[in-house]
Design a protein around this nucleic acid. Structure first.
Lengths: 216, 216
DNA sequence: GGCGTCCTTGACCAAAAGGGCAAGAAAAAT
DNA sequence: ATTTTTCTTGCCCTTTTGGTCAAGGACGCC
């Protein structure tokens, strides 16, 4: 086995154009399928068909179903957690929180599948994400909870449990992605409709802000 | 074919004790499995094993996987929608809404699997429930939205979009069932812990009520 | 334009999954 | 106690699904 073979065996060879393109197409299709049916409910054939590629070809890029799932999950994860990180302690609580809520609502409108992918994973008991939840997620929540606590101490917010407040924000915003089907059944339209998006935003922002900002 | 055979073919014969018992045990096990893996991710063998029964025996009671799923879904549905119906126009808005929120939170604590079963169905696009969502659910939401609108007209509530307010209540309460795994990862404990339940209730009730009740 | 590597797929395989059947074991009815 | 009905399971079948393999075709580099 020469050096090149070793390198290739380790997967450390330079990625070709075709590789990059196809891997991305695969992950997009996989996101669609996994977000609808969960890991166990999704089939490799289904993903392959959605990509317009033979199954063996798909498996040339990702050898196991697991690998596809893990790849799409990790690809999504950072993007998903980002908004919370944006929330800065220095700013005005109202501005910061409203900004965060708006970002999450935009995510629900623009990236609903990503949201559904996570809930599918959570429903199963988060077998592939358990570690991340208990470390990275927990850490960032603890950190932001501290920020909220300081705002409360400064009298800028009503006293509330910060973690449960974060849960409320997550719940109310992600609802529009996760329960999209239900929202559409009741409302007749979804978040892609500007009026619906505005009504949802206004309601969520107003009620939550009125609920935690002091005075009046 | 005599009368009895005809009756049996129609399934209209009296249910025996064993039938009642086993069907219930099956539906319980099916709820567990379907709520974790969704319709497609669940397997009949898995359910059979959970019941402690051979697969052919299980299929003696429910001939197809579909039938099990439909049965557990409809069994859960009424129970699930009930609390909304309890909300009466005559009462005081605060009492009624707080009561509703509390009931939903208790549901999340006591019947989390039922909640997860629904979200699994919704994620798939509600293929088995679409009709119900667009009729019964939509109707009851419209009805309750009218009640809320009247409360607003009477100055008993701040002006908010009633439907989105209902969504917020659903989202914040069901979150504790659907995201149980995540809640546990962050908090270290779930809603079965009395302190957690109290903290969640207080936060949700306080923030929402403060967010929509007028004055002060 | 030739050559080595990468890409693609048809054919195939083993395991898992939905479901049927017939025959024996338990219950119920007589 | 016998007969009838209901319950239960071992065995089998078919389809689906995850995954392999060998061989042909495309690509990129000299």
């Amino acid at each position: 086995m020469d050096a090149i073979e070793v390198a290739r065996a380790r997967g450390s060879r330079k990625r070709t154009r075709i590789q990059a393109e196809n891997e991305e197409k695969i992950l997009d299709a996989a996101l669609e399928v996994f977000s609808r049916f969960g890991f166990r409910g999704a089939t490799v054939d289904q993903i392959a068909e959605k990509v317009g590629m033979s199954k063996p070809n798909l498996l040339y890029y990702f050898r196991r179903k697991q690998d596809i799932y893990t790849a799409v999950l990790t690809r999504t994860l950072d993007m998903w957690l980002a908004p919370l990180g944006d929330m800065s302690e220095d700013g005005d609580p109202e501005t910061e929180l409203v900004g965060y809520i708006r970002q999450k609502l935009e995510q629900s409108r623009d990236k609903p599948q990503e949201s559904r992918l996570f809930i599918g994973e959570i429903l199963q008991g988060a077998p592939h994400l358990d570690k991340v939840l208990k470390t990275e997620l927990k850490d960032i929540v603890t950190e932001k909870a501290a920020v909220i606590r300081r705002w409360i101490a400064d009298g800028k917010l009503i006293p509330v449990d910060p973690v449960h407040l974060i849960f409320m924000i997550w719940a109310t915003t992600q609802h529009y992605a996760d329960f999209d089907t239900q929202v559409r059944a009741v409302l007749g339209k979804g978040m892609n409709n500007p009026a619906t998006f505005r009504a949802a935003s206004d309601t969520v922002v107003n009620v939550l802000m009125r609920g935690i900002l002091p005075g009046r």
